[in-house]
Design a protein around this nucleic acid. Structure first.
Lengths: 246, 246
DNA sequence: TTTTTAGAATTGGCTTTGCCAATTACCTAG
DNA sequence: CTAGGTAATTGGCAAAGCCAATTCTAAAAA
């Protein structure tokens, strides 16, 4: 978890952003110089991280052009269609129990690392990867690798589906203060070693998220109707009968 | 062959030297500065090559000490080690919640199919597949494909590890009557649409299973092992599971 | 003589600065 | 509107320097 060398941390963060769908397959990463500034490290360090990602097969570097996320090599096409709602509900159940379990097994080091993610989350650039880090630390703190595998599997689902990426992106951007608040609540419960409080806080976190998803989906449906309406408005317009008057 | 980036050529050369035995496993490579001079490149380039080799698992870097050829490449254990205890605990958590969820969404057809698995389980030959069928039907009944994916993933883990296969085999054979009983209890709770009862019944099922695993492991173990086991009994206990709170 | 320890040398970790080459974007000329 | 050339962007690589961890060495203490 605490990789000594600096570039490993960058690798971790960028990989999270890829898995989360912030950097979708085929997209271009920010230029090295920009990444260096974002993460507060030098360009050579960024280069090291990029090379590590390249060896891992996550990105591809094109000289003079940019760094590109490699196309989805994992044919995760389990032809099972999973909505953002289902995923969120599943995460609530699994991660809720994980939090409860972790409350009795989490170490001081992990609590410190958890707290660090709260700090990182203030920064716009690393907010998303800090989010993933937060949930992953808790899963690891259960001392149960099977649970960790399950949680990671659910994270992969998030990045595998275009709709889910969009849905989460829309929701997360507009509610980061609440997310901070909820993460803090979860952290506090874990710090107090209160299993029930941790579970409840985690459930609350996802409850808010799923409600935000509903709102967003509603808004999108409304916009769809509006679009169709204006389309029809154009199609059935009688304006062509008169000279333009704009 | 013609890797355009410079560091790839260095990677290639060094890897050859390792494979040929010029740099035997465990030995230390020349310092970065020296390598840089040898290959006529700058130190950052050497660092990039070393990092690529590190990600590939060929070398290991120790700060202030040197770069070492990794000992046993065959001992590449990328997979997390998961014990039967961990797996069972994880299943208890996930499938417990799945059962609670399914209680409100399960259809009459699924209940009938579930009942059929109880019948099939009487037959020695089809007991195992009926068991799996039983748990999968419940997962599907949640109407949440993400949960289904998670449960299936855990089931895959079961087959992936030799130790887990053995542990489960030993336990299942000797306690099929109890398993029948527990499955029936879960079925009844689902039939009654009682979410809390379903969760509790599922937990009880796994609780008995995990205890049976401990007993089996205890029986097999030496005196020294027995001490550790009772230590673990606390760690993997399901006692922290609280009653539902919805 | 043996052990301890302090400091010097070695070695990786990371930054800064700078320039080159490939690619891309843009803008002007035809 | 297209074509071609130029400027900006972006990755590739080098050089020099400082810091921190480790190791080596040799002097000091037991």
């Amino acid at each position: 978890m605490k990789n000594r060398r600096l570039f490993w941390r960058i690798v971790e963060k960028i990989e999270n952003l890829i898995d989360t769908g912030i950097y979708p397959p085929g997209s271009r990463l920010p230029p090295e110089r920009e990444l260096a500034e974002n993460y507060g490290v030098s360009r050579p360090t960024i280069r090291e991280a990029i090379i590590a990602l390249e060896v891992r097969g996550r990105v591809e570097v094109k000289t003079g052009s940019g760094i590109y996320v490699v196309e989805n090599q994992a044919a995760e096409n389990n032809d099972l269609k999973i909505s953002a709602f289902e995923l969120t509900q599943a995460r609530a159940l699994v991660e809720g129990e994980a939090a409860a379990l972790a409350a009795t097994t989490i170490t001081e080091e992990e609590l410190a690392a958890l707290h660090q993610t709260l700090v990182d989350m203030e920064t716009e650039a690393s907010a998303e990867s800090a989010d993933k880090e937060f949930h992953l630390i808790i899963s690891k703190a259960t001392r149960n690798n099977a649970i960790l595998v399950a949680v990671e599997k659910l994270w992969l689902l998030r990045g595998a589906n275009e709709d889910i990426i969009d849905a989460y992106k829309g929701v997360c951007n507009q509610s980061s203060p609440k997310r901070m608040e909820e993460h803090t609540a979860i952290y506090s419960a874990l710090k107090e070693r209160d299993a029930n409080a941790a579970r409840a806080a985690m459930h609350l976190h996802f409850k808010r998220l799923i409600n935000a998803l509903f709102d967003a989906s509603e808004k999108r449906a409304l916009e769809e109707i509006r679009r169709k309406t204006s389309e029809n408005r154009g199609r059935y317009s009688l304006d062509h009968l008169a000279p333009a008057h704009n």
